[in-house]
């Protein structure tokens, strides 16, 4: 396929000024929103998704409950203004249903659902802006939101997309690159390096596949550091708020300070 824009120029730069293996800026916001148990707004460059988690809570549909573990329910909503061309997508659009099903099956083995029998965990994904890498943004945001909701998971799930321009592998494609290049999304669990999700939808030679696949795995590890830092910042911010600023007793083991309450 030919394109008006040069995907990779002679100097080794991409159309948005990145190098081949450079990921886009990511920004993570895990502040509390409404009554959700966990939420995360994640931005990969211009792609932006908001994920909110409710649960584990009493299952809405009794017929769907499982007696030995929690049910995960994923709903994806692509906002009409998320693409250049304003378009309202039906909720039952196959592409959206597939995205939801992919997210659901990616997280089912990672979340320790067996701890919450007969409950339900709702994952609501809002796609605010799309500029390529939609699936990987959704996966990463869901991971962070689940962690914020305090739902036990065996590990992070870090997803990265990758593509190939003639023989040069690229990482974290924008919409422009995605339209022209064969591309795939890989999600890894950083601790074991195992892969939970592989999605390739365009024609690609087997040898190229192996190359990008390995590369995306490594990029996942890099992304993990970033995500972990965001989680750690949030945890320490909340723990600090609870402890140091108020100099209040924690739990039951230091109840000496309790006497203060006798003052009135």
């Amino acid at each position: 396929m030919s394109s008006r824009v040069e995907i990779l120029n002679d100097g080794g730069y991409r159309s948005d000024g990145r190098r081949q293996y450079e990921l886009r800026d990511i920004s993570i916001d895990t502040s509390q929103q409404g009554s959700a148990d966990g939420c995360c707004t994640l931005r990969h460059g211009l792609t932006e998704v908001l994920v909110t988690i409710f649960g584990p809570r009493e299952a809405k549909m009794r017929s769907q409950t499982l007696h030995d573990r929690a049910v995960i329910n994923v709903e994806v909503n692509v906002l009409p203004f998320s693409t250049g061309e304003r378009r309202r997508r039906a909720r039952a659009d196959r592409r959206i249903l597939e995205l939801a099903a992919t997210i659901k099956s990616t997280f089912e083995p990672v979340v320790q659902t067996a701890l919450y029998p007969r409950s339900q965990v709702d994952i609501y994904v809002q796609v605010l802006q799309q500029d390529g890498g939609l699936l990987h943004a959704c996966v990463n945001a869901t991971t962070l939101a689940l962690i914020c909701a305090g739902i036990p998971m065996t590990d992070f799930v870090c997803a990265v997309s990758g593509g190939v321009h003639s023989t040069e592998p690229l990482l974290d494609l924008t919409m422009l690159e995605e339209n022209d290049l064969p591309h795939m999304t890989v999600a890894v669990m950083p601790r074991t390096g195992k892969v939970t999700l592989v999605a390739l939808e365009t024609r690609l030679h087997v040898d190229r596949f192996a190359e990008i696949f390995k590369l995306a795995g490594e990029a996942g590890q890099a992304l993990h550091k970033e995500m972990k830092r965001a989680v750690r910042n949030r945890t320490s911010r909340l723990v600090d708020a609870m402890e140091t600023s108020m100099k209040q007793p924690v739990g039951g083991e230091r109840d000496v300070v309790m006497e203060d309450r006798m003052d009135f």
């Binding site: 962690i147 036990p152 998971m153 065996t154 590990d155 992070f156 669990m189 950083p190 601790r191 972990k228 989680v231 750690r232 945890t235 320490s236 723990v239 402890e243």
Partner: peptide
């Protein structure tokens, strides 16, 4: 001092 951790950390 409370040590902080995140999922998947040994």
């Amino acid at each position: 001092s409370h040590r902080l951790t995140s999922p998947g950390e040994p």
